[in-house]
Amino acid sequence: MRTVIAEDSVLLREGLAHILRRFGHEVTAVGDAPGLLAAVRHDPPDVVITDVRMPPGFSNEGLVAALQLRRDRPGLPVLVLSQYVEHGSAAELLETGEGVGYLLKDRVSEVAHFISAVEEVRGGGTVLDPEVVRRLLARRRVRSPIDALTPREREVLALIAEGRSNAAIARRLTVTDAAVAKHVNAILTKLDLPPAPDDHRRVLAVLAYLRA
């Protein structure tokens, strides 16, 4: 798998490249947002992993670059790593469609999880950091469609948001695949997402969650 990583800290860039190479990635590493855009233009990779805060402004250049890449090349898998959780950024990314991820940076140290998240995004899945999901679950807004969900359905939705497949959710909750499918259908109905042939409905459900 050919991967471009953008991270300004040399220490983390090397660490990230080391981990990815160990799992067979062919890594191109850059240190800022213009570098990232140039690298992708020069040789489009299979997946992009980028930091949010990078030179020159040390603001959210990485996120802006990620959004631009998603606009210019729809479907290019992009995983954004952030030092802190801001669900506005997560929602912006998710709105660009499937094949995106938003993880806290220290999640990289859970190496096996991190690698599977990269695979998930590469395969067109959506991955949200469990911290984002936890915050959203803890938040009790007034009159949110999420209120209509049962605790079990919320649990399932949280796992969907983390980018897990029905089979993975079934394993995690030790229930049958059919039971998970039933929960997923209930969630989609309650969130007013009519049946469509697309798996994208799962992303829409998570988006509804983020906007609630």
Binding site: S9, L11, L12, G15, L16, H18, I19, R22, Q83, K105, D106, V108, S109, E110, V111, A112
Partner: peptide, 17 residues
């Protein structure tokens, strides 16, 4: 500190692997 500590966690994560 935050970057270094993230680096330490990454290295320890690799060590666990």
């Amino acid at each position: 500190a935050q970057q270094r500590l993230t680096g330490v966690a990454m290295t320890l994560g690799l060590a666990r692997l």
